[in-house]
C-alpha cells in the first residue's frame, strides 16, 4: 500500500507541477482571476449592497445561495453524527459514583437512590480529575467569549467576521464549559432537544429568508424584495437581509458544533464526556 500511495501521490503531484507552468505568478494583479469577475464585487459592493466588507457581501448576497448550502452541509454533519452515534437505551450500572464538590470525596450510591445532599455531582469513573482553577477560570471566561462572539456576528458587515466565526465562538463557549466541568453540566444548561431545534431553526432562518423573498414576488434570496416589509430602500434591504441570514448562520453553527461535540465526545451516551 505504501508504494501504491507513493506512486499515486507523485503522479498527482507531477501533473499539478506540469500545470503550474501556465499559472500567473503569486500576486499578479493582471491575472484572469483578478480582472474578470471579482472587480465588480469590489467596486460595486457599496453601491449595490451597502456592505463595506466585500467578503460578507459576496458570501451572503452575490453568492448567498452557496452559503445557504454551506450552512446546510454542517447541519447535515450534525444530523449525521446524531443519527450514527446517539444511543438511547443503555444498561444502568449497579451503583453510581457521586463526588462531593467541595471536598472531592467520592461515594458509591446504589442505582435508583439519590445522593445524601445536592452538593454531590455525578461522575462516571473514579479517576475523574477535579480542578478548581480550570473550572473557575473557564466560568469567568465564558461570558466574555460569548459577548465577543455576538460582536463578531453583528459587526460582520464592517470588519472581518460574520455568522460562521461568531457561531463557532458561541459553540466553543459551551464546549469549554463541557470540557472544564463535564458534559452533564453543559447539557443541563443547553438541553439536547433545545440544541437540535436550534440547529434546524438557524438554517431555517436562512432558507426562510430566501423563501420570503420568493413569496414577495422576487427571485429566491433576492433581499431587495424585503424593502417594503422593512421600510427601507432596496439597497439597505440587501444589507439587512445579509444581517438576517448571518444571524441564522450563527445560530445554526453554534448548535451544530455543540451537537457534534456532545455526540462524539460521549460516544452518543450523553454521560460525563471527556
Amino acid at each position: 500500500m505504501k508504494v501504491v500511495g507513493l506512486i499515486i501521490a507523485l503522479l498527482a503531484g507531477s501533473l499539478l507541477v506540469y500545470a503550474t507552468a501556465d499559472f500567473p505568478p503569486l500576486g499578479d494583479p493582471n491575472s484572469p482571476a483578478s480582472v474578470h469577475v471579482s472587480p465588480r464585487y469590489i467596486e460595486k459592493t457599496m453601491e449595490e449592497t451597502d456592505v463595506p466588507n466585500i467578503v460578507t457581501s459576496v458570501l451572503a448576497d452575490y453568492r448567498g445561495y452557496d452559503t445557504m448550502f454551506e450552512t446546510t452541509v454542517i447541519f447535515c454533519a450534525g444530523v449525521a453524527c446524531f443519527l450514527l452515534l446517539r444511543v438511547y437505551r443503555r444498561e444502568e450500572p449497579q451503583e453510581r459514583l457521586y463526588r462531593h464538590v467541595l471536598t472531592g470525596v467520592t461515594i458509591h450510591v446504589k442505582a435508583g437512590k439519590l445522593p445524601p445532599s445536592p452538593d454531590f455531582e455525578r461522575i462516571d469513573s473514579a479517576w475523574t480529575p477535579h480542578d478548581l482553577i480550570i473550572k473557575t477560570i473557564c466560568r469567568l471566561l465564558i461570558p466574555f467569549i460569548q459577548l465577543f462572539a455576538l460582536y463578531v456576528i453583528a459587526h460582520g458587515h464592517h470588519s472581518p467576521g460574520g455568522g460562521f466565526q461568531g457561531g463557532v465562538m458561541l459553540g466553543a463557549s459551551v464546549i469549554v464549559l463541557a470540557m472544564s466541568q463535564d458534559l452533564r453540566t453543559a447539557v443541563r444548561r443547553l438541553r439536547e432537544k433545545a440544541d437540535a431545534l436550534m440547529c434546524a431553526t438557524g438554517v431555517f432562518i436562512y432558507a426562510g429568508t430566501g423563501a420570503l423573498c420568493l413569496l414577495l414576488g422576487s427571485n429566491f434570496l433576492d433581499y431587495s424584495a424585503l424593502a417594503p416589509v422593512l421600510h427601507v430602500d432596496p439597497i439597505m434591504a440587501r444589507s439587512h437581509g445579509i444581517f438576517m441570514v448571518e444571524v441564522g448562520v450563527g445560530v445554526a453553527v453554534m448548535g451544530v458544533m455543540i451537537w457534534i461535540y456532545n455526540n462524539v465526545s460521549s460516544m452518543g451516551k450523553y454521560d460525563e464526556g471527556l
Binding site: 494583479p29 482571476a33 471579482s38 469590489i42 467596486e43 459576496v58 453568492r63
Partner: peptide, 14 residues
Amino acid sequence: AVHAADYLNPLPHV
C-alpha cells in the same frame, strides 16, 4: 472611487 486593483480578490476567500 473604489479601484479594484487596491483590494485583494474577495471571491477565493468566500
